[in-house]
Computed example of a mutant assay.
Amino acid sequence: MNLFADAIRWLLDPAQWTGSYALPVLFGQHLLYTFLSVLVAAALAMPAGWLIGHTGRGREAAVAISGAARAIPSFGLLILLVLLFGVLQVPAAALVTFVLLAIPSLLAGAYTGIEAIDRRVIDAAKAVGMTPWQVFWKVEFRLGLPLLIGGLRAATLQVIATVTIAGYVNLGGLGYPIIQGIPLGRFDEVLAGALLVAALALIADLLFAIAQRASVPAGVRAANGARSEDEPRARIRLRAPRLARS
C-alpha cells in the first residue's frame, strides 16, 4: 500500500509535468506511436482480410501468418529491427515492430467478420441484383463490422502494451518511467508508469467495446432480442409434456 501511495505522489509531483520527459509529452508520444502503427497495419491488413473473406481464398495462409506473427516476441523483434535499420532509424524500426504486431488481429477480424455471415444473406443480396461492390459494402462490410472492430480493439490493446518497450530505445512513451526506474530501484516510478499504461489500455478497451456494440445493425439486434425472448418459451414447451406425464 505504501508503494501505491508513493506512485500516486510521484504522479502528482509537479516535476513530472514539466520538461522534455514530462508526463503529457510521454502520453502524447505513446498515443502517436499507437495511432500510426494501427493506422498503417489497418491499411495493410484490412483489404487483404476483406479479400480473403469475400473470395474464400488464402484463408489457410492468413491463419498461418497470423499465428506465426503472434508467436514473435515483441522485445526481440524490436532489438532485431533496430540492429538491421541502424541507430539512426530507431523510430522507423520501432514503428515497423508495432505494425507487424498489430496486423494479425486486424487480418483475423477482417476476414472472420465476412466469413461469419450467413451465406443465404449474401445469396439473397445477389438475387436482388446487387453488384459485387454493393454486396461487399451494403452487406458484408456492415454485418462484419462488429468483428472487424473487435480485431481493431485487440490490435490497439496489443500495440498500447508493446509501445511500452519504446522507452528502452529512448523513444519516450509511457514506458519510459518503467525502463528508467528499474535500474535506479525507483519502484514508485515503475508502478506509476505501469498504472498509466494500464489506465490508457482500459480507456481504449472501453471505447472500442462501446463502438463494437453500437456497430451491430439494428435488425441484427432486434433478431437477437426476439430470439432471446423466445428461448424461455421454448424451454417451457419442452418441459410441458414431462409435467403432463408426471
Rank of each mutant, 00 (worst) to 15 (best):
L196D: 04
L206R: 13
I117C: 06
R59V: 05
A234W: 06
L200T: 14
F75M: 10
I65H: 01
G86V: 08
A204Q: 06
A94Y: 02
M130C: 09
I160G: 11
A155N: 09
L206V: 12
Q212W: 01
A226K: 14
V220Y: 03
I179A: 15
I160T: 10
L184G: 07
V139Q: 13
Y168T: 15
A5Y: 04
L51M: 12
W133V: 11
V128F: 02
P104K: 12
V139M: 14
L83A: 15
Y21F: 09
W133T: 12
P183I: 06
T18Y: 04
A209G: 07
Q158W: 00
L78G: 00
I79E: 02
P132N: 01
G28W: 12
G19F: 04
V216F: 03
G225S: 14
M130H: 07
I210Y: 08
A68G: 05
L157S: 10
P73Y: 03
P132T: 01
V190R: 04
G109A: 05
V216T: 15
V25S: 06
A48R: 01
V82M: 06
S105D: 10
G67E: 10
I72T: 08
A240V: 08
L207S: 11
A154E: 15
A94C: 02
R59F: 00
G86E: 13
L200Q: 12
A209W: 02
G129C: 02
I52Q: 02
I8T: 12
S74Y: 04
L31M: 09
K138W: 11
R227L: 15
L171A: 06
E140H: 13
V40I: 13
L106T: 02
F208H: 09
A93T: 04
A166E: 03
R59K: 12
R239Q: 10
P24T: 15
H54N: 04
G19T: 09
L171W: 00
G109P: 07
L39M: 08
G49Q: 08
I52M: 02
L78K: 03
F75W: 00
A222L: 15
L202C: 09
Y33R: 01
T97M: 04
A42N: 01
Q89T: 07
A214Y: 03
L200F: 10
R227I: 09
W137P: 09
T18C: 03
A124N: 06
L202S: 10
F75L: 14
V121Q: 14
G167T: 05
